[in-house]
Design a protein around this nucleic acid. Sequence first.
DNA 1: GGCTGCTAATAATGCGCATCATCCGATTGA
DNA 2: TCAATCGGATGATGCGCATTATTAGCAGCC
Lengths: 358, 358
Amino acid sequence: MPRRRITQTDVAAMAGVSQATVSFVLNGSTPAGVRISEETRQRVLDAIRITGYTANPAAQRLAGGLAQILGVFTYEATFPRPSRDFYGPFLTGIEHAAERLGVDLLLFTSAPVEDGRRRLTREGWQRLGVADGCLLLGQHEHRGELQHLLDTNYPFVFIGKRGSDGGRLPYVGADYVSGTVRQIDRLVALGHRRIGYVGLRGTDQPTLDRVEGYRDAMKAHGLTTRFVELEDTAATAAEIVEQRFTAVVVAPENHPEELADELAARGVRVPDDVSVLLLGQPHHLRRGGRAWSGFSVPREEMGARALYLLSRLVADDGPRRDRDARRPAAVTEAELHQVLACPDVEGATVAPPGRAAR
Amino acid sequence: MPRRRITQTDVAAMAGVSQATVSFVLNGSTPAGVRISEETRQRVLDAIRITGYTANPAAQRLAGGLAQILGVFTYEATFPRPSRDFYGPFLTGIEHAAERLGVDLLLFTSAPVEDGRRRLTREGWQRLGVADGCLLLGQHEHRGELQHLLDTNYPFVFIGKRGSDGGRLPYVGADYVSGTVRQIDRLVALGHRRIGYVGLRGTDQPTLDRVEGYRDAMKAHGLTTRFVELEDTAATAAEIVEQRFTAVVVAPENHPEELADELAARGVRVPDDVSVLLLGQPHHLRRGGRAWSGFSVPREEMGARALYLLSRLVADDGPRRDRDARRPAAVTEAELHQVLACPDVEGATVAPPGRAAR
DNA sequence: GGCTGCTAATAATGCGCATCATCCGATTGA
DNA sequence: TCAATCGGATGATGCGCATTATTAGCAGCC
């Protein structure tokens, strides 16, 4: 058992070649017209196998190569709690993909946090360098920070659709629009007509997409759109009663459990009197919470797909690797902007309109 | 906005000094009798502030320094799901601590997985090198692998108490023993006498500690210990009925919800007929699951404390830093082996003995 | 025999940083 | 007055690797 790291030089000595030759063999080929005979190649490979050599990622990175390390930058601080249930699934998917890719993950927890959101400062940006590329995840909009990334040509992928500037930012998002459309269709098919949208106004992409889906679907069915955009849960419940909705679609960051409580307090039962469809998983879980109907955002899949994409980008424009044959095809435009379907969730909070509405 | 990384050389040029001087200023002092005048120091610091310089972790590491990166190695693959709920809280704590320490986290997801458990191979061990130190987490016992770590003097900390060989392995664990003792005390105080232990036999530390606590407490109260160690939940429920237990303490990896179902199927209600105390959080959550009484393992705190400890170890025996003044005190023996208290959980599955027992 | 053209490999260089050895000028000691 | 000492800082070196420039050997050809 060697105490010291095993280096390419060690391997080279064992194989009776130079360190450079080992490096060439490892990197699969010949940037500058260098050739290695098959025999030598084998000798080197054997030596590697015997010594159990593995590249030192730090050195690889320093020398301008790839370290098989991918970064994960989370805008919102993963704390306090509520968001943990939110990010968890993404990370699960990411981790899974990382495992399959044989890559390590670097979590940029060192970035400074200002009132709950991490900043990607110039300094932080320098630290990204250890990773071959980086996943960005979370709402956010610090224009300048992104510009920096684009300028430096550092490979990165957003998790979550990017509307503005989307053309230049690679992302893997969820299809909130058609997910929402389907919920409305579903309600209409059951006989609902007075369908409200419950959720705060916002300029974040998910909100924009949900509203768009709601608008489009209601219009397609010739129904009137009605929005309830109140901070207060009790007030929201009151408004729902007031408006005589038979069904509402609700943005998941609103506390659906509490909303149901407030409705119950007003003698309104879910789903008997009002159907409630959630546009995404509830952000705040509760013990004994109910099974919400609606759609779910495929967070794990998003995480995984994003990492795969990142990995491809890295391979593409990372250090100019072998121009030779079996190189994976370059990333296509379509791949750069993926939108994943949000599967419906059956749940138990949807039913045909109650008596009052008939 | 510079396209290229800003290096110490850039800073040096701006401050009118040599790169070495910059390095010295950054590392706080003088390994080899080198002194820097206060004036120069300030000039360098200013230049750093202006340029927004941040060290390249890869280079730091390669040159034998610290990169402010701490590794996390998880023995059990974080997948499939069940374990996700288990590791999640640890990671939450770790991440929180990392944030406070201003450190990045490296997840070693590249390690090969063999039937569900990650191996820490010689190759993998080499990859650890990018991080200044490493957290190990999960059951496991590959002696040789650990030996390697000890040999190389690489800083690491286990999450979870290590019994065997514990003297040499730094860890942060949970006090399962006294947690269990308290549960028995609690039951006895309520009037219970026939108290069973439900859980599979095992040689993992938590199991050993739970059993020890159970044994000690029962003995202290002059009661007879009775173990139910069956794989099958239905059989377990049957045995509980058969033995006429008025209360049981249950290891959390057993599916308590299903157990309750099976008991109900036999006309036994929890807690009316049988009190059930969980020795740790249930591993498998269920929607609408009940509030279990017992104790909880402070996983987040364990994660955080472990990272703090690791950070101290790194500072201690990491690259021989400044021997000068305000260096934090060396890690004490006591710190190397921490056992955290497991707070009681009130819950709703405990009550005085039912009619049958009186 | 000198030339080109080709294959197979090596030497040399630099990435950004920590550190060791060295150097220089100004005191101090004898 | 010259050596010894000390504060203050620089040059050189190497970490392990990727990559470029260069060399060595050899066949073919005028």
